[in-house]
Write a protein that binds this DNA or RNA. Sequence first.
DNA 1: TTGAAAGCGCTAACAC
DNA 2: GTGTTAGCGCTTTCAA
Lengths: 336, 336
Amino acid sequence: MAATMKDISRETGLGLATISKFYNGGNVRAKNRKLIEDAARKLSFVPNEFARSLKTKQSRTVGVVIPELGNAFITSIITIMEDQLRKMDYAVIVCDCRSDARREAEAVSFLLHKRVDGLINMPTDTTGNHLLPAIKAGVPVVLVDRLLRPIRGQVSAVVVDNADAAEQGTEFLLANGHRDIGLILGNRSIFTTERRFEGYMNALKNAGIKPRDELIRYGDYTMDGGYNAVKALMSLPARPSALFITNFEMTIGGMLALSELGIKVPEDISVIGFDKLDMFGEIFPNLTLIKQPQNAIGEQAAKLMLELLAGGGEVLPQTITLSTQLYIGSSTLPAR
Amino acid sequence: MAATMKDISRETGLGLATISKFYNGGNVRAKNRKLIEDAARKLSFVPNEFARSLKTKQSRTVGVVIPELGNAFITSIITIMEDQLRKMDYAVIVCDCRSDARREAEAVSFLLHKRVDGLINMPTDTTGNHLLPAIKAGVPVVLVDRLLRPIRGQVSAVVVDNADAAEQGTEFLLANGHRDIGLILGNRSIFTTERRFEGYMNALKNAGIKPRDELIRYGDYTMDGGYNAVKALMSLPARPSALFITNFEMTIGGMLALSELGIKVPEDISVIGFDKLDMFGEIFPNLTLIKQPQNAIGEQAAKLMLELLAGGGEVLPQTITLSTQLYIGSSTLPAR
DNA sequence: TTGAAAGCGCTAACAC
DNA sequence: GTGTTAGCGCTTTCAA
């Protein structure tokens, strides 16, 4: 059977309190310190997390609820978050709700039963109702990538300035003389989709250009969706002279569609993509794109969570908005 | 403060044992059953997992250690596993070790400290040493996708018959008259890479064809790698007439390279890809490919783990080998 | 600094 | 079927 503090106590002749203190960073005489270390090694003692949790009411575990695992943007953020949290000895339980609000609520409830200390969520349900049990239970919540208006002020969040990102990308194309800009968005009614749509519209409005409805497509943030959207746009009688594709997967799908159609970038059409520059590597060496700061998003989310966790209910929720960057490659050309 | 069983006991006048039994599926009189349910609702009581764990020595948590989260094959398996395990009330802690053996060993140690009940691992370290602590501690281990010879017999595993998969694909191309078949593999010395290489070589040998070394490329299982490998193969003086690309990401990269080079599939070259048919959807509607049974892999891994968990050390480790399927699309043509 | 002792909330053996 | 009771292994007053 695994050794307990009692065994260490017997072995060293020290009291339980001293040993406990040793493992919690308290002051222990150097001599005793060594005594404990030796005994622990000898008995291969490891503190029992269950007992500790029972006493401290903390699981040192954070739940993460996301719409899906098969999305490069999401997994890159999770990887970073997990790293940061693990450094502070927090484990991460990931629940994929397949973009289903019912599953999402179940995941939250499951995690609450598991007594996670905090919840990080890229929400599917736009009402935020699924998080109410967590809020009521005093479990800190950090939203990632998407805000939830109904519960704003009650939870922290890390997002990107999506409207600005889209505005910037659109403006760049406008500045290059493009007036017919195809926009490929994610699923309707998702936070990022709406904000990016706004940014696009703003840019057009500011330039005094009337948007053409048929140039705006919804590609569901999937490779397939991007592919289809580009094909549809390219079969329009009045083709756009530029394309703005608003996530990684759709960008790949879109590029595939173009190359399949024999349409050259940037000679025949200008393209602005989204996310994940490194992975494109050799493939689209010079794609102009909007870079979201995935690493910073993950880091900030973890940091916010750790602060909330350390603050013991005293820390106020806050929203961090990060900027995107327009990386100018050579996939765009002035309109003719 | 959260209600405890004691509160329910006071509220209902029942003993602790009865209440505990109720929550553990024991026999309780219908009347009392109702009494407890009402009281629990009234006090919004939830059993404390910490206390339960302390007593039962089980965390109802399984650790999953993988090389990376940003790979479609891996995430699709995790999604399924998580589903199955969660159904049985097990939480899943995922640790991404970025294909780094040191990080992998750390992850195992971390999870052991967190007292996971079991470990599922797609191993990076080929020695299996990282799992020794788990084995010694009696924590059941299930390997996924890759076997570890040094510790065989001590852990369970779910793999695919990779050699057979590669042989089958190669044979199909051979049967179509192709003799110069470009093979694009993953990272060297990874289990699946080696097995698939074997299968390819076997097929050639059986057909009495001498392999050409320069037709075998390592694309690191990345999009970029696949892209580069195809470009390299296509710049050979003696081009292959067919390509066999052995994972999803490399297949996409490879297809992009081909379409960029203006090489038509299947008119100019035959292609067999790998994995993830649904996602290709409209994009490569008829790509011939090797389908790995991701769902079955995830399900079997979860099932093996649940059996090991339920068996209390009595269940013997076993290895399940699943077959792949050759899905014949129209991306191959007989060689001219 | 250190030790003794009282729980944290639950399970399970045992007696009824 | 139900109640009593003794821990599970740790943290944390409190006193020394």
